[in-house]
Amino acid sequence: MNCVELQHSLAEVEDASTAEQRAHLRTCPSCAALVKELNLIASAAGDLREADEPSPRVWNNIEATLREEGLIRPAPRHIPSSFGARWGTFGWLVPAAAMLLLSFGIYLHQQSTKPTNIIARQAPTYAPNVATADLNDEELLQEIADNSPAMKTQFEENLRQVNESIRDTQGWVRESPNDAEARHSLMDAYQQKSMLFEMAMDHTLP
């Protein structure tokens, strides 16, 4: 192997580790110096890796653009974790039970506040729909404050989160009306609110 052949061979075997390359390098100080210098360049190159990261404006711009383009969707907010712990593995029963209990609760509540109308009215049936989000939160909070003041703060926070979740998912459904996941999330949010009302009434009814 001569000097020219060695240079060509370095493209394929850059560390000059073949027997032929090593034999040439033993007898040729110039090529040995060349290999040493190329190795020096390669090892010094690692220092050029940038330790810095892009400024926060990069992510901010990316996120803003993704939102504009509808690629980021509002994440449905989860019900407070204490709820999950409370209902455990039977969580799937919660919405159904909540609806039944809420219907019954509203019925009892009406009986206690308007006894003269009992005969004339039938118990209302409840189905989760957009109107659920419009139930009078303030009145219910007031009832809780009157009957179970210790629960008020926690209930207020839970109610705020559930309402926020409903607003988010309503926005998601408006943006993507054909998105089954969006509609499902909205129904979940309504069910969470109905469950919250049921729990509140459970504590406030005499």
């Binding site: 992510w59 990316i62 996120e63 993704l66 509808g70 690629l71 980021i72 994440a75 996941e181």
Partner: peptide, 11 residues
């Protein structure tokens, strides 16, 4: 699925 946190985690 449009999760903002996931986008940011990848970033």
């Amino acid at each position: 699925h449009g999760d903002a946190h996931a986008f940011q985690a990848l970033y």
